[in-house]
Design a protein around this nucleic acid. Structure first.
Length: 943
RNA sequence: GCCAAAGUGGCGGAAUCGGCAGACGCGCUGGACUCAAAAUCCAGUGUCCUUAACAGACGUGUGGGUUCGAUUCCCACCUUUGGUACCA
């Protein structure tokens, strides 16, 4: 075979691996195991884009490397195939979702195999497989069967839930309803995000700026009865267990912030007159803080109880239940108007724009429990009903939002925290003219005066707890997970609703027997959403919809699960994909878990990882898995952008406008002065030159040109198709290039000439070993069975050392650079020791496996190199006997000298003092100090 | 606004227990080979000054600081990208 021809080599080895099941994983690991996992893809109709192979190549290199290091490697792949896009594609093309999904999966599989990834394809699964979602439904039933024991901080079987005597006394149905209220999977009438455009409700996480994450449709708030998962119960553990994980601090922080744990206090403000206050106080003193809110108080949550003396008014959310009871007749018209307005506002309107504070006075007053003074109660939409108690004490002096509100409505501002002496705004702050949110010393605060912020918090909580008015409290931003969707293409809930004789729901629900799983999707003629919150599954035949058990009639739950459900546990199923009696065999789970390396896009940093960790903890509590956390090491690959483009701007008249004079308008770019709409013009590479920090037109250097890489998108037409790259350069080149572009985690622009560059490198490797003048894979004559020279050994062992170290730290770009240096060196050598050539091929094999196998075979081997031992290096052979050492004067490099590598500090200093080129610099100067680092440098400090 | 990451040649990037800035690749320039081209191989390639060489000055977003010595550490600021949105 004269030339390197990936089009022939690559299919040959893909077939070989597939036939010989080269990458089949043993059921149980022998010796050490590594579980290397990709975030499995959503099989869209567009096929793979070049972003997919980036992460997949990184994990494949790891998998191949650890196999060669003798570990048992689990490296599987599957498809996350339920969800909206498949369904919308199906509606558009009038194909049942299952059919189009299977076509897409087939195309993805073809593309993945074309890239030579060493997956154990026997373990491939899709979340839409009936045998898979059978177990997704099973886990839902486990959530349904679990309640969270706050004391033990643990999920336990619902049968162990203590039933209060008064509930038990009311009979079986009451007990049943009581249990339903405590399950991790429960139904709740809640204000939900209803999206008419998609015909479904969405989780908070799926709504961005009041629009749906998918499709960008507007979302409204409306009350609906929905399935919820009690993820908030696990809030503390989801934060604290991050500690033991090998994730970047950034991702950990993102998760912790999303959960948003805050500590503070709940405080009761009595809604009584000033004269009734002392009486109210005495009813509370010495009593435990009431669990349910008494009718005569407004309960608030605050993280700054130390500022209680500065609370000059209160604010409640428009949806707060006491609005109706406390509003005075004089204010009722204004209050009604404000609240109605707020209800009609979408979340977007509420948060949009300048966030100017709006509000209305209820006419009512509450007593500040520490000052005894009445303070007004206002309604404002900057207080959210869903967080804390839906009511706040407003401390305008020390909270930005309260301050703005107080300014807008001329409410009093009382400073109670003294800033430090050197705060430039100190006087203004003390006078209430500026808001101060930092820590300081308490003032105007009774017994708290003089205490620091932390001490004051502790003291006030102690005091108020003793008087029965407050207690320490914890709150989370995280809400329970809204788990049901009104769409067709998802897992049906394995839940039955009991019906009475008139076919009305009785409110009693029961789980489908686990032996009856899976509950398959019904056959439907029409599964399109119709814009009303009644799910499409309600249109199924009665034979699917209605079930009779023990003489009772039931109607099936018609909601489906969200797309996240299937991806919450797929990593477990890969361990034991064909098990028909359990989600995963316990011994296998124990042997393979946790996932040692998990690579995927940063877009899943919050949602998928949070949900999966939550499910995993429930499975852990219930004894089905052996570790508290599923993913030990997590790496987020960066995004791959399109090629760098130069863009200039022209007026409609064809006049160039420098980018310095443009700004983003509502629809496109406009002239920053005239606001004239501008056309963006793509400018050729050759018409652009660099001037200072900017690119400008060659023809007119006063015109600045925008130079940047953009996200790949169909609209921009800069999408790179992996199929085309493989056809032109080969899969090995694509893999190698994506690893050579830069650090895995960085965002990087694509460059076609860069792909050509690594292809060039592979050609050079080929010619280094294969005689291109003969047919067949004959080796070049320079490859000989001789011992390497010491210089050759330095290159060989140095390369093995560097490549090994880099592969373990995921620094693939520098590993490739080292192999290029190896090839540059040996291309010039007329004798190429066989041992060295073999080492290079083995080092290269995780990156360019097809070519490596082919050359390995040419080197006389008959077995695949997939399980060949990784080359070992002798560190003593990597060191040169002589090294070049820089000599500096006052930290500036003046000359260099070759010295024996083991020179001592004294020898180095002597060599430097005797060096003729330094003599000129030292002439007439005095050496104040000599700094000598053996093996590195010499520096003279002179005067 | 807040949070996170990042700013190094014409381009992608390399080098940080502080010790020769620019590895490797792309691009570009020149040479060899060729009738010619492609391919390949060899050499050069941060900027500036000097006729040129030797050499020198400057140089890692900006301004300060610590140090014999700073791309690396500290302070302030600017820019870019990503995330987030009144969570009391």
């Amino acid at each position: 075979m004269p030339r390197y021809n990936p089009a022939v080599i690559e299919p040959k080895w893909q077939l070989h691996w597939e036939k010989n099941k080269t990458f089949r994983t043993p059921e149980m690991p022998s010796g050490d195991k590594v579980y290397i996992l990709d975030m499995f893809p959503y099989p869209s109709g567009a096929g793979l884009h070049v972003g997919h192979p980036e992460g997949y190549t990184a994990t494949d290199i790891q998998a191949r490397y650890w196999r060669m290091r003798g570990k048992s490697v689990l490296h599987p792949m599957g498809y996350d195939a339920f969800g909206l896009p498949a369904e919308e594609y199906a509606i558009r093309t009038n194909t049942p979702p299952r059919v189009s999904t299977e076509q897409n999966i087939a195309n993805f599989t073809r593309q993945l195999k074309m890239l030579g990834f060493s997956y154990d394809w026997d373990r491939c699964l899709a979340t839409t497989d009936r045998e898979y979602f059978r177990w997704t439904q099973w886990i839902f039933l486990l959530l349904f069967d679990t309640w969270f024991d706050l004391e033990q901080q643990k999920g336990r079987p619902i049968s162990e839930l203590p039933i209060p005597a008064d509930v038990a006394a009311k009979g079986e149905d009451a007990v049943s309803l009581y249990r339903d209220k405590h399950r991790l999977a429960y139904q709740d009438e809640a204000l939900v995000n209803w999206c008419p455009g998609l015909g479904t409700v969405l989780a908070n996480e799926e709504v961005i700026d009041g629009k749906s994450e998918r499709g960008n449709h507007p979302v409204q708030r409306m009350p609906l009865r929905q399935w919820m998962l009690r993820i908030t119960a696990y809030g503390d553990r989801l934060i604290s267990d991050l500690d033991g994980l090998d994730w970047t601090p950034g991702i950990k922080k993102l998760q912790a912030d999303w959960i948003g744990r805050s500590t503070g206090a709940e405080v009761d403000f009595p809604i009584v007159t000033a004269s009734e206050f002392s009486k109210w106080q005495s009813t509370r003193r010495g009593q435990p803080y009431p669990d349910s809110i008494p009718a005569d108080v407004l309960r608030i949550y605050t993280t700054r109880p130390d500022t209680l003396y500065g609370a000059t008014y209160m604010v409640i959310a428009p949806e707060h239940p006491v609005v109706k009871t406390i509003t005075t007749p004089e204010q009722s018209a204004a209050v009604k108007q404000y609240c109605d307005n707020a209800a009609f506002k979408s979340d977007r309107d509420r948060t949009d724009g300048d966030k100017r504070k709006t509000g209305v006075f209820t006419g009512a007053f509450a007593i500040n429990p520490v000052t005894g003074k009445p303070i007004p109660i206002w309604i404002a939409d900057y207080v959210l009903i869903g967080y804390g108690t839906g009511a706040i004490m407003a401390v305008p002096a020390h909270d930005d939002r309260d301050f703005e509100f107080a300014k807008a409505f001329q409410l009093p501002i009382q400073c109670v925290v003294e800033p430090s002496k050197n705060d430039s705004d100190r006087e203004t702050i003390l006078a209430g003219g500026v808001c101060f949110t930092g820590d300081g010393l308490a003032i105007n605060s009774g017994s708290l005066d003089g205490l620091g912020t932390e001490a004051a918090k502790a003291k006030i909580i102690d005091e108020l707890t003793a008087s029965g008015v407050a207690k320490q409290a914890i709150n989370y931003k995280l809400r329970d997970w809204l788990f049901s969707r009104q769409r067709f293409w998802g897992e049906p809930f394995p839940i039955l609703h009991e019906l009475d004789a008139a076919s009305k729901p009785t409110g009693i629900i029961r789980a489908v027997d686990t032996r009856e799983l899976p509950v398959d999707l019904p056959q439907l003629e029409d599964y399109k959403p119709h814009g009303r919150p009644e799910p499409p599954l309600a249109k199924a035949d009665d034979s699917w919809l209605y079930v009779t058990i023990d003489g009772k009639r039931y109607r099936r739950e018609t909601n489906t699960m969200p797309q996240w459900a299937g991806s919450c546990w797929y990593y477990l199923r890969f361990i034991d994909p064909t098990n028909t009696s359990a989600i995963v065999d316990q011994a296998k789970e124990k042997a393979w878990m946790p996932v040692d390396l998990y690579i995927g896009g940063a877009e899943h940093a919050v949602l998928h990882l949070l949900y999966a960790r939550f499910w995993h903890k429930v499975l852990f509590d219930r004894g089905y898995v052996s570790h508290a956390e599923p993913f030990h090491k997590l790496v987020n690959q960066g995004m791959i952008l399109g090629e760098v483009e130069y863009t200039g701007f022209q007026t409609a008249g064809g006049q160039w406008v420098s980018t310095a004079q443009t700004e983003k308008g509502e629809t496109g770019y406009v002239h920053s002065k005239t606001k004239e709409t501008l056309n963006s013009i793509s400018v050729a590479d050759s018409d652009v030159t660099k001037s200072g920090d900017n690119f400008v037109l060659v023809s007119d250097p006063s015109i600045r040109i925008d130079s940047r890489a953009h996200k790949m998108s169909k609209a921009r037409g800069n999408v790179v198709n992996p199929d085309a790259v493989v056809t032109e350069y080969g899969a090995d080149s694509l893999r190698l290039y994506e690893m050579f572009m830069g650090p895995l985690e960085a965002t990087k622009p694509w460059s076609t000439t860069g792909v050509n560059g690594v292809r060039n490198f592979l050609d050079r490797v080929w010619r280094l070993m294969i005689d291109t003048h003969t047919d067949g894979n004959a080796l070049v004559d320079s490859i000989q069975d001789v011992e390497p020279t010491s210089e050759q050994n330095r290159v060989i062992h140095g390369t093995i050392m560097a490549v090994t170290r880099d592969i373990e730290s995921l620094s693939f770009n520098t590993a490739i650079a080292r192999m290029m240096e190896f090839v540059n060196f040996f291309t010039k050598e007329t004798v190429r020791p066989r041992k060295g050539m073999e080492a290079l091929i083995l080092l290269l094999s995780p990156y360019a496996p097809h070519m490596a196998e082919e050359v390995w075979q040419a080197l006389g081997n008959t077995e695949s190199l997939a399980y060949q031992a990784w080359p070992i290096f002798d560190e003593s052979l990597t060191k040169a006997s002589e090294i070049e050492v820089p000599f500096q004067i006052n930290g500036k490099l003046r000359t260099k000298l070759m010295v024996p590598a083991d020179s001592t500090a004294e020898q180095l200093e002597q060599a430097a003092r005797g060096h003729e080129r330094l003599a000129d610099w030292l002439d007439g100067k005095q050496i104040v100090k000599a700094i000598v680092v053996p093996g590195r440098m010499v520096n003279f400090v002179v005067k």
